[in-house]
């Protein structure tokens, strides 16, 4: 049972949240894309081994969506940030390529 740092409610157990996969995938203009590009938006999401910026929604609490960095190997949690704010640097990106915590 990991804890997720909701920016509004603080650290809460993961069962209060729903997972939203990779963060920062904006809804594109559907009419400007080929089938290949459109389906990339539909179906491809990052799946890294290491730090991932991902989305969560606190459905059992404030109901708000937010993003955070999390390490998919260690489950360490990095900075959380609200939608439409600047994404903080990945905790792993400090001079190390593909670092695994």
């Amino acid at each position: 049972m990991i804890q997720i740092p909701c920016p509004h409610c603080g650290l809460r157990n993961e069962t209060e949240f729903h997972y939203g996969a990779e963060a920062g995938v904006a809804y594109p203009d559907p009419n400007a894309l080929t089938d290949s590009e459109w389906t990339k938006y539909l179906y491809i999401r990052a799946n890294p081994k290491g730090w991932l910026a991902e989305r969560w929604v606190h459905f059992a609490g404030c109901g708000r969506w937010f993003n955070l960095w999390r390490n998919t190997i260690t489950h360490d949690i990095g900075p959380a940030y609200l939608p439409f704010t600047t994404q903080p640097k990945s905790p792993g990106n400090f001079g190390q390529e593909g670092s695994e915590a």
Partner: peptide
């Protein structure tokens, strides 16, 4: 409801 909120909060704020 989750669907509506997801669009409002993460795409069309």
């Amino acid at each position: 409801l989750a669907w509506l909120e997801e669009w409002l909060q993460t795409e069309w704020p």
